[in-house]
Computed example of a mutant assay.
Amino acid sequence: MGSSSKKKKEKQKDFAKPKLKVGKTKPKADNHTSTSFRSKAIVVGHQSLNTAAPTLQTQLKHNLTLLNHHAYSTRRDSLAHIASVLSSSPASNPPISYSILLPALAPLTLDSAAPVRTQLLTLLTSLTKPKDLRQDAIIPVDAVRMHTPRFLLYVHSAMTHISADIRGDSTNFLSWLLDVVGEDAVRGAKGWGKTLKCWMVLLGWESGKSGPGIRTSSIEFSDPGKNKKASLQHLIVLKKFLSVGMLENETPLSHYDIRMADLLRPHQYTESHLMPKTSNIYAHLSLFATGGVMENVNEEDAEGSAEDFDSRRRIVNNVFEGNIRAGLHTRLQEGGEIGRLAGGLLKVMDKALKADRLDTH
């Protein structure tokens, strides 16, 4: 009997509630673990043992890899970092090769985020167009000229993109190319005819008229006239594009050409003794072509040779003139600033094609 009463008392202890007194803390449980200790060591999971800081080349290459990051803020910040590093570096000794930098920047013209495209345009403008013409650009014009076909490829994709925002910003990059490299942006198989085809799609002038919408392949584009700001931008750049490509005496020179003209012009006939800038400088004479080849240009030949002003005017005259004039007359009827720009474009067309027709006769 004594042992059984003892066991009952021991069991009752497990359910007994301790009496708490004022000023005394609650007793700790039996399974309590003390965490009052302090550690004097800090453990880092991935710690580099290299004491030297990363070089500028390493930082730039790392930021180039971040241009493909899924977060648009990371892509934007990487562009800003690249611009700040290059702007503080000497142009004669860049920390990274332009043959690596420029091809990595070109695809961002199709970036889905507007802040990234804006930052890219700011970078290209600030690094290739110096504020003072007496200074060299950080990225030389020759480097941009070498990669102009690659930039044109992405500009064409942007001009015919399914996203309206990307199409709206596409002509900003084309305007930058025209300002930096001048005629080189419209020369060649893809610079003139292919770009004009993209213009027709962008402005809705493929069918020779401006309607509520056009369909090409399986992509339906809305009427570009609904967005007045984008329409103004497109018409301004189109006027610059046609002027550079067809008006020989009024082609704006790039900052590089202006500086070289001042340095290499001891007399007025200096240009006649310099090396030619085009590969086929006597194409307009048709010395090695059969009769009528240069005169009859159809839509299949629109992306052909456009090395000189005559060939570019002839392509417009035989392929694109009807569509461009129909679209401009529609814009002219809208009046306002768009109507004035359309009228200015018609004057450029008349002036360029009138000179071409006088030459042919």
Results as ranks from 00 to 15, higher is better:
I281E: 10
G292N: 05
I315R: 10
G304I: 05
L328M: 15
V237C: 11
G291C: 03
H284Y: 02
L238I: 07
G225R: 13
M260L: 12
G339M: 00
R340P: 04
R314Y: 01
Q233E: 14
E303H: 00
D262P: 04
S305F: 01
D257F: 01
K347N: 11
A326Q: 12
S305Y: 03
L285W: 00
E295D: 08
D350Q: 15
L263W: 05
Q268T: 14
E271G: 04
P276S: 11
K277H: 07
N227K: 06
G343C: 02
I236P: 02
T251N: 10
S286M: 03
K277V: 11
G343N: 13
I219F: 00
A355W: 10
V237M: 06
D262W: 04
G336E: 02
V237F: 03
G344V: 05
H273C: 10
P224A: 10
R265A: 06
H267K: 13
G245N: 10
A302E: 01
V297R: 02
M260Y: 04
N323I: 06
N280L: 06
K347A: 06
S254Q: 12
D310Q: 11
E271I: 08
E220V: 14
H234Y: 10
S254D: 09
R265T: 15
H267L: 08
E321K: 14
E299S: 12
S243H: 05
K240M: 05
P252S: 02
D262L: 13
N280D: 07
K228R: 13
E337Y: 01
D257Y: 02
Y282V: 07
M349F: 03
R331H: 11
L346K: 14
S231H: 02
L235D: 00
L264W: 03
S286K: 05
E299P: 00
L232V: 15
H234N: 13
G322P: 09
L328G: 09
G292R: 02
A355D: 09
L332V: 09
F320M: 05
D262G: 15
S243G: 12
V316D: 00
L285Q: 06
K351N: 09
S311M: 09
T251S: 10
F221D: 08
S217V: 14
G327V: 07
D257H: 11
R314P: 02
T216P: 00
Q333I: 02
A230G: 04
S231G: 01
N323G: 08
M260C: 07
A306S: 15
A230C: 08
G292M: 02
M275Q: 13
K229H: 04
E300N: 05
A289L: 11
L353E: 12
D350F: 14
D310R: 11
A283M: 07
L328E: 09
M275W: 04
E334N: 09
G344A: 09
G339V: 06
M349E: 10
D356E: 10
K351E: 12
N249E: 11
N317G: 04
R331W: 12
F241N: 04
K228G: 01
E248R: 15
V319T: 12
T251Q: 09
F288V: 03
L247A: 07
V244R: 04
F241R: 06
V293Y: 05
V237Y: 04
I281D: 10
H267C: 12
D223L: 05
E321W: 13
L345N: 06
Q268I: 14
D223C: 08
F241C: 08
E248N: 08
I315C: 06
A342F: 07
G335T: 13
H234V: 01
N323M: 11
I281N: 12
S218T: 12
G291L: 01
N227S: 07
V293A: 03
